[in-house]
């Protein structure tokens, strides 16, 4: 089934609005302008509305939850990143996150723009509650780590500028990291159980699995470094950025560099 024009229009409309929101937000941040920031948030909400419409339309056209193809996975990931940012941005103090989080969503959408967008019927082996749970929890885990990343970059920036209250971002990064770790753990366990039902094996050491495990180990190191070694501030922030690089490599890099079983491309 080819992608209807209306769906394609919604995709590019949302992408355009997010781009515009980021431009306004960036300039508001540089000029310290509250009104520009507020406008940017409103534009981003409009982008999210179009994006939600796109997901809904796709769900209707495909007849199943749009989390099956690689395009759908990235699309849902970008949608969640934007939603989480906008929910956080209701507190004025958190709005700075958008400077670093909006580009993450934009890059994901940009990546999706180059992917085959055709709607695919549900393969019988994908029609499993366990698999949907796996995809959903993994996306939530990755989106939560995107918050950790943005909060950590915000912390480093504010600390360098000698601005007030960078510690709030440090705390936010930690809370989001904990959420990310819980959801990624759930995602890995449910994915292994689904693989066992279909392929008869819990773990294959497939590159995508291996990199999920590596990402999980980095999240684990971050939490332990904070909790037991008392890492705070800049050191923890750099580890969080490394964790986000692992998320991106797990999602994008593995697809291009390593042959694998997972069909996320």
């Amino acid at each position: 089934m080819t992608l209807p024009q209306s769906e394609l229009m919604l995709f590019y409309f949302a992408l355009g609005l997010y781009g515009l929101a980021w431009g306004i937000h960036f300039s508001g941040w540089r000029r310290d302008s509250l009104s520009l920031n507020t406008t940017a948030i409103r534009v981003a909400w409009a982008g999210l509305a179009a994006h939600t419409g796109l997901l809904g339309l796709r769900w209707y056209l495909a007849g199943h939850i749009p989390l099956i193809t690689a395009f759908e996975f990235v699309n849902a990931f970008a949608w969640l990143v934007m939603l989480v940012f906008l929910l956080f941005a209701r507190r004025q103090h958190n709005r700075m996150l958008g400077v670093f989080l909006l580009p993450v969503g934009l890059l994901l959408m940009g990546y999706a723009a180059f992917m085959p967008k055709a709607v695919q019927p549900m393969l019988i082996i994908f029609d499993s509650l366990l698999l949907k749970f796996h995809v959903l929890t993994t996306i939530i885990g990755y989106a939560a780590w995107a918050i950790t990343f943005a909060a950590s970059v915000s912390f480093i920036y504010l600390e360098r500028k000698g601005r007030e209250k960078p510690g709030l971002f440090d705390q936010l990064a930690y809370k989001a990291a904990f959420m990310a770790f819980c959801f990624l753990t759930l995602g890995i366990i449910s994915g292994a159980l689904w693989g066992d039902k279909v392929f008869g094996q819990l773990w294959f050491w497939d590159p995508k699995e291996t990199w999920s495990f590596i990402t999980w180990l980095i999240f684990l190191s971050y939490l332990h470094a904070r909790y037991t070694l008392d890492w705070r501030g800049k050191r923890a922030a750099w580890l969080a950025i490394l964790g986000f690089a692992a998320v991106i490599f797990t999602y994008v890099g593995v697809d291009f560099l390593l042959p694998q079983l997972h069909g996320t491309r």
């Binding site: 590159p207 291996t210 990199w211 495990f213 590596i214 180990l217 980095i218």
Partner: peptide
Amino acid sequence: LVVLTVVTIIGS
């Protein structure tokens, strides 16, 4: 934990 992460990356 760090050594395990590094050797897993190398193995991948």
